[in-house]
């Protein structure tokens, strides 16, 4: 009898709690001067803002004149050709991804990425077909910028690199490390085929740009300050990549009042 009472009590409490939830969300209130988020937002350190804005304008013009039209043309290629190029370029990045996963202590991911590289380079015809994905070996990107961050290296200040776009001191260092250690680039240079390096960089840029044509245009056409919007987007995206966390966990949750809708 005592047990039945207890169960009734639990059920009653739970039914009441569901009403409490509904009521609680109604009671969410923020004061007029309360603009907090659930996690601390860091101010982006941008001491070179004036110079960065100048380079950003140059990059923006270069994008409009060259990269965007080329990326739009690339998008008109048959879908299997686009996927093939994208997969091939991604497969070339895999050896350094494995190195960075190992440096970050991600043993399981490193094994999976090695498996991806082996499967796609062989069964996937030199990486043109992503066979590995179909057998559950998902693509996970890691780079030297992320590795430095996991070793405690801070962002440093924000920089906009000519042609390469938004970055910061740490990620620029990581990018240089990638250029110096990439085995495919090293092989091309050793074989006197140095032209392959900028060709690959350009192909990567076109492939990546083709995937965000609408998003970039939406941001460009609707921003009060396009520079600040790109800077913010860059930092949010890198933060999520470094922490390898679900975006909903990491991104600050705005404590938004809805009582006066």
């Amino acid at each position: 009898m005592q047990n039945i009472k207890q169960i009734f009590f639990i059920v009653f409490l739970t039914l009441v709690s569901s009403q409490i939830f509904a009521a609680a969300s109604d009671q969410v209130k923020t004061d007029s001067d309360d603009f907090e988020t659930t996690t601390v937002e860091e101010e982006i350190y941008d001491p070179l803002e004036r110079l960065n804005r100048a380079i950003f304008s140059f990059n923006n013009a270069a994008d409009k004149i060259i990269l965007e039209p080329v990326a739009k043309g690339y998008k008109k290629l048959p879908s299997p050709i686009q996927s093939g190029i994208s997969n091939f370029l991604s497969n070339l990045r895999m050896p350094l991804v494995v190195v960075n996963q190992l440096l970050q202590g991600q043993g399981k991911n490193a094994v999976e990425s090695t498996g991806r590289f082996l499967v796609n380079s062989t069964a996937g015809v030199l990486g043109l077909i992503d066979v590995a994905d179909r057998i559950g070996l998902e693509e996970k990107e890691e780079d030297f910028g992320q590795t430095l961050a996991t070793y405690g290296v801070g962002d440093g200040f924000y920089v906009v690199l000519p042609l390469f776009g938004p970055s910061n001191v740490r990620d620029t260092t990581g990018m240089i490390m990638t250029m110096l250690t990439d085995p495919v680039n090293a092989y091309a240079v050793r074989e006197d085929e140095g032209w392959l390096v900028p060709t690959r960089t350009g192909a990567n840029a076109i492939d990546q740009r083709s995937k965000i044509i609408d998003e970039v245009n939406a941001l460009r056409n609707n921003s009060l300050d396009y520079y600040a919007a790109v800077r913010s987007s860059y930092y949010q995206n890198r933060k999520a990549a470094i922490n390898n966390t679900d975006d909903d966990v990491l991104t600050p949750l705005p404590l938004i009042s809805i009582e006066f809708e």
């Binding site: 109604d26 998003e215 705005p254 009582e259």
Partner: peptide, 26 residues
Amino acid sequence: KQSKDRYFVIDLIVADISLVVTKRDE
């Protein structure tokens, strides 16, 4: 978020980028 038996979208996160946080920075 739910308020007075209605739902409201308070943020939209596309590829790890929050629309609201980006707008606030901008």
